[in-house]
Nucleic acid binder design. Structure first.
Lengths: 344, 344
DNA sequence: AGAAAACATTTGATCGATCAAATAATGTGG
DNA sequence: CCACATTATTTGATCGATCAAATGTTTTCT
């Protein structure tokens, strides 16, 4: 029961050597069929489970990836990272990988943690979220040849093509472009946009999606486009204020797109005319309240992250990348259209 | 830099033996002051970090706790567990404990995972969430003498006092009792309640908080109390429907309490009269929309869980409990009052 | 049939730390 | 100043697995 057996016990029980048992588990192909079956029977009979730490000590591989859990920035949008974490854990599990959490209070502190986990052979690699321009973490990881993948492209000038930096990101441009198109196809011409102030890589990316689609269609002049845009920091109350400003200054409005669900929720509150409002992130709130939104497809992101992290050898995290060609995945988000019938 | 040093390297550099270095790290008290300093200097100079797996192999202790991440039950309320996870990771870190995630598709599958992690010496103990009556997981853990603490009391008949089962829970009764009192003190007499159908331990607990407070005050007869209550499964749309039903059948209403924020959000939508509505869980949505709610104080819960898991010896997860007195913590939730100024 | 090649299995060493017991250094009392 | 207790440090063994190389077995080919 609770007494657990070692590889030697199994070897004894099956009448073979330790190494053969090890081979049955790690490279079954090289063991003769009938010995293999005998060993497998013994494994099952004794309920043998390999001792993870012993294996790690020997192989210098932990089959564990580390990810930082943000200190809960309150707000609706925080949940995207939580959903990503769910997806990552689920898919990592399927590949025999474990997910280890850690926290940090600042990028510098985070580097200390990264070092600790790496030196202690606790993890084989890291998944980084919420990257920003000039991120010291990626720089440090590259310098120390530690493998990692970021959810979020590197926003620095040349970093996008850095072959050392593997990343997966969601194409915010495509998301907003599609959302704009969808509204236009439904007859809207004057589509407003509530976005974030610079500098924000993601914010600018999304904004351009809307802007490009508007210009392509040519329903409004570039001058008017400026008046259809409001910039504000994230938040529900801020969304309400921004919507009110749009209504004062933009003239006729056929629809409004927002850089986040928080803003969209706020916008919808100051929306007596029942304009279609579209948010970003497809958070539970959006679903609950019947708000159209752009879904980041965290499952695909998680799959991409693991694929890059394990390389061609599924299930094993490989060392820092050797190849010179940049590796990344750009995920196209999914537009989820809803009728917001709920708020009366 | 990247070449990492072993305990032997440090010993050589400091001119002492391996064991002395080990002692400096684990029981500094027994090492003479000046040798200790010399060793510590060498540790710092070489940037030595103990190899976690090697230590685990020898000590049979991982300083890691396992927790299952639920497969993202969509909905607003799921976020409570996420917030708990944040809090747990943060506080575990402070005690030198790590948090390892895993997933499972069913309670049976979860037991398999528990066994794997335990046999592999991956974790020292577990934190279980979302317990239910007759939970097979706790039974299995107790039988196998594996230490664990649940977030959620055991709902079985005698289990509450089982000394083998350590638990932390939030006093839903107290939460709803306080919320009811607060409304009453503000002048409300006829307070409705939208709750969950039986059997639900937590649901019944919350419901009784409201009911007891109503009976204590005696503003309405028990007969009327029945008409002030509606039962429905969780969800925003369900909350809206329930609210409409209450308005039809309950007569005058001064306030409404709900078993969850989802229900409360729904209730508020069908609420032209601007009745005060109170939810449960204090989710980001409640904050965003200005909904009163009951906060589960996940930080306190996390602290309690770790306290029980590590026992008197902070930082180390102890074995299965020996003592005969039941150990648990009941956390009183915090009522957060808000004016819902947002929906116009 | 005999030698070489291919395949199957075993043996000893090792990963980096801690435990348990042995030895060395220091302190105390008569 | 020596015997003895106390404290400080070192040595060898060990945790459970895998690696690398050695040994044993079967197949292939001339």
């Amino acid at each position: 029961m609770t007494t657990f057996s070692t590889i030697t016990d199994v070897a004894l029980a099956a009448g073979v050597s330790r190494q053969t048992v090890s081979n049955v588990m790690n490279s079954p192909g090289i063991v003769k069929a009938d010995t293999r079956e005998r060993v497998q029977a013994a494994i099952a009979r004794l309920g043998y489970r390999p001792h993870a730490s012993a294996r790690r000590l020997r192989t210098r591989r932990s089959s564990t990836i580390g990810i930082r859990l943000d200190p809960m920035i309150d707000g609706i949008s925080g949940s995207v990272l939580d959903r990503f974490l769910h997806a990552l854990t689920e898919q990592a599990d399927r590949q025999g990988l474990r997910v280890l959490l850690f926290t940090a209070t600042s990028p510098e502190d985070e580097i200390t943690q990264l070092q600790r986990l790496n030196d202690g052979a606790d993890v084989d690699g890291f998944v980084l979220t919420s990257t920003f321009a000039g991120d010291p973490r990626t720089k440090w990881l590259i310098e120390n040849r530690i493998s990692f993948v970021t959810f979020g492209r590197p926003w620095g000038v040349d970093d996008m093509e850095d072959p050392q930096h593997l990343w997966v990101d969601v194409d915010g441009w495509a998301g907003l472009h599609a959302a704009t198109r969808s509204r236009q196809d439904a007859g809207a011409q004057r589509i407003g946009y509530i976005g974030w102030p610079s500098p924000s890589g993601t914010g600018e990316d999304r904004r351009r999606g809307w802007r490009d689609a508007m210009i392509e269609r040519g329903d409004v002049t570039e001058d008017e486009l400026t008046r259809l845009e409001v910039v504000t920091v994230d938040g529900v109350a801020q969304g309400t204020a921004a919507m009110q400003e749009l209504q004062r200054t933009a003239g006729r409005l056929d629809a409004v797109l927002c850089a986040s669900d928080s803003l969209a929720l706020g916008a919808m509150i100051a929306n007596p005319g029942r304009l279609p409002v579209t948010g970003y992130d497809n958070t539970p709130v959006a679903a609950a309240i019947g708000l159209s939104s752009i879904d980041q497809s965290v499952h695909e992101v998680a799959a991409g992250v693991l694929e890059l992290l394990t390389g061609e050898f599924g299930g094993k995290v490989h060392g820092a990348p050797e190849s010179l060609e940049p590796k990344h995945r750009m995920i196209t988000p999914r537009l989820v259209e809803r009728d917001f019938a709920v708020i009366p």
